[in-house]
């Protein structure tokens, strides 16, 4: 029986889609049969980040409406075995995700895949609620700034109240905090909340810290999950987070500004 992971945040632009793509790719690279689903109906982006936008024929809504089978809509990733992408519709609105249809799709996917990663839309409306409803685990994507933390807090509350697990009074959804777009330099200057601040305020276990890095934009420009870029600090950080998610111990990296960076700034520019 597969495990459903929702990647959510409340706020937009914090890195949910980037995280969904990286996480799904990371799990598949470790040999787990994984599918990543775009729940952001009308604002399709996962296909671009995964680099399969030129292969989309059918989408989530087509499957729900019975216009296509699940297998017709699932796109097999060309780089990574075990990885499938389930794109959403660009031409419908969020309410097109009918409850029974989504229930059915999730049941089918659970039978087929080990991990089902759900990329949630921003907000706390129908789309976001539908994405989190089936979750067994939630990755709360948060940036170290005030409005993102507040929105995360809100979504954690909703998760506890409105998920299927809450409704059926099963054990609660596993919650993980993922700090993204983290800039140690700006934290040090006191311009951004620190890891400790955010952890303390949200009181959630920390799954990882993804540093702010231009390699993320480069990866999405080329349609490649950033975890596949061996030179990307963000990619490495995602790899750690995936390892922790499946129970491995990994030390946190990228928390402090690079020690030598100041010296390098003075003496080592040519070397870096």
């Amino acid at each position: 029986m597969g495990k459903v992971i929702v990647v959510t945040s409340g706020k937009g632009g914090v890195g949910k889609t980037t995280t969904s793509a990286a996480f799904a790719a990371g799990l598949a690279l470790r040999g787990h049969k994984t599918v990543v689903i775009d729940f952001d109906v009308g604002l399709r982006n996962l296909d671009l980040v995964m680099g399969c936008e030129r292969r989309v024929v059918f989408d989530f809504i087509n499957v729900i409406n019975g216009d296509a089978t699940l297998n017709q809509a699932l796109i097999r990733d060309k780089r990574i075995d075990n990885l499938h992408i389930f794109p959403t519709s660009q031409t419908r609105d969020k309410d097109a995700l009918k409850r029974e249809g989504v229930d059915w799709v999730m049941r089918e996917l659970r039978n087929e895949f080990e991990y089902i990663v759900c990329d949630s839309p921003a907000g706390i409306e129908h789309g976001a609620l539908t994405a989190l409803y089936h979750a067994d685990a939630a990755i709360i994507v948060t940036n170290p700034e005030i409005s993102s933390v507040r929105d995360s807090d809100r979504i954690i509350g909703i998760l506890a109240a409105k998920s299927r697990r809450a409704e059926k009074r099963e054990s609660p959804v596993e919650e993980h905090l993922l700090l993204t777009r983290y800039s140690p330099e700006r934290v040090k200057k006191g311009e951004m909340l620190s890891v400790e601040d955010v952890k303390e305020i949200l009181s959630l276990p920390l799954l990882g810290i993804i540093p702010e890095s231009p390699t993320v934009l480069k990866a999405s420009n080329t349609g490649m999950p950033v975890i596949l870029d061996p030179a990307s600090p963000a990619g490495r950080a995602y790899e750690d987070a995936v390892a922790r998610f499946i129970g491995e111990q990994r030390e946190m990296r990228f928390v402090l500004p690079e020690r030598r960076s100041l010296l390098r700034g003075w003496f080592g520019r040519a070397a870096s």
């Binding site: 507040r150 006191g190 601040d197």
Partner: peptide, 27 residues
């Protein structure tokens, strides 16, 4: 740093507003 950095002000403001919002949550 001599003055409280903006992040610590942010943190305080957050703690207050969240304490308030959480009290309104289900249950």
């Amino acid at each position: 740093p001599r003055k409280p950095a903006s992040a610590s002000v942010a943190k305080e403001r957050l703690q207050i507003v969240l304490a308030h919002e959480r009290s309104g949550r289900d249950g």
